[in-house]
Nucleic acid binder design. Structure first.
Lengths: 187, 187
DNA sequence: CTATAATCGGAACGGTCACTCCGCTTCGAC
DNA sequence: GTCGAAGCGGAGTGACCGTTCCGATTATAG
């Protein structure tokens, strides 16, 4: 059940790295939709080699993506412990806006694609966001009725739409709208 | 160049209607992604018949969708002429929230799919939204920096996100967030 | 160096889907 | 009723893509 596998052969390890790098770039450029053959070609290997290392295209996507989601988890957790949770939420959203400009894989990572590993990371993100939002709400920086689920859905849709439009300044502008909308309604 | 075509045969007209109805339902349920064969089956005809009436799947989608977009255009125009443009914007967003619950074709209609006809309708929507937003902004109900383009992207993302989640109460909650976020930032 | 097993590459498979083709059916003008 | 043309259906085509298979290649232990 654990890993009694003997270490990978040297060339195999090298190829594995190439594939991961190529996948990172390809997914970032085009989202989950890139043909697997394109990733293989970019890595300079055949598709068969990709499947030797990852049982499925989805598994490859997860291997690339879990790390990215975990970064957000770390940020959200740090925010949940920060002195000013409202500002921490601002920072998190700002970071996501930056990512949105360059990386097209986040939307798929936040929802939909990926069963096993990414689902776990998503759950962690969910939890971390919930405590961050709870604290921000207690501090009066976030309205009632908005939890991690709502925020993640909103972000996913927004990222998708924004990336299709191509305007690099759009994410920041729209996230500012969302951020202000998250505040408690004015009396 | 115009329409010198003799009138359609009776059965042909009947089939055309069946196809349009089936397409309306199928696109509403599953978005642009439904296989054309599924639409044909639903209409009780073969795929060849669909292509006799519409040159392309996209053309069929447009035929179904343009009408829906035009309804929004009418609503936006009415709002642009209303006494209280802020309230009109609220009404428009509310209407869109309702649609979002039941119809999955709006996101594709608002962006991406469709070149010729839908693009024209989209442009009209764009214009109508711009005047509505201008007037709402003048009335202090909308912040700077948000035009029709921004609003359409925002809405598209929202619709996409909401429809994947399945929660029928979600659209209203998230649209409230967006609506409040559109207001001028607090001092 | 050699034997062996791990690894590789890429042709081939199977499934999906938009779209085409054509022999048969059905309408409707006369 | 007849007949030409319009229309129909559904099998077939080609493209795309994830995945598998296997003969050729290459690393590494001894």
């Amino acid at each position: 059940m654990s890993t009694p596998d003997r270490p990978l052969r040297a060339d195999a390890r090298r190829n594995r790295e190439s594939v991961l790098t190529a996948a990172r770039e390809a997914f970032a450029e085009s989202g989950y939709g890139v043909p697997l053959d394109a990733i293989a070609a970019r890595a300079g290997v055949g598709p068969g080699t990709v499947y030797r290392h990852f049982p499925t295209k989805e598994a490859l996507f997860e291997a690339v993506t879990v790390a990215r989601v975990r970064e957000l988890v770390a940020l959200a957790r740090a925010g949940g412990a920060a002195a000013d949770p409202g500002a921490a939420l601002d920072a998190l959203l700002g970071r996501i806006a930056e990512e949105a400009v360059a990386k097209r894989d986040l939307p798929d990572a936040l929802g939909g694609v990926g069963e096993a590993a990414v689902a776990v990371a998503r759950t962690e993100l969910h939890g971390a966001l919930d405590t961050l939002l709870d604290r921000a709400r207690a501090a009066g920086a976030v309205r009632e009725g908005i939890g991690a689920a709502e925020l993640m859905v909103l972000l996913k849709g927004l990222l998708q739409a924004v990336q299709e439009s191509g305007d690099p300044a759009l994410p920041a502008r729209l996230l500012a709208v969302v951020r202000d909308g998250l505040r408690p309604p004015r009396p």
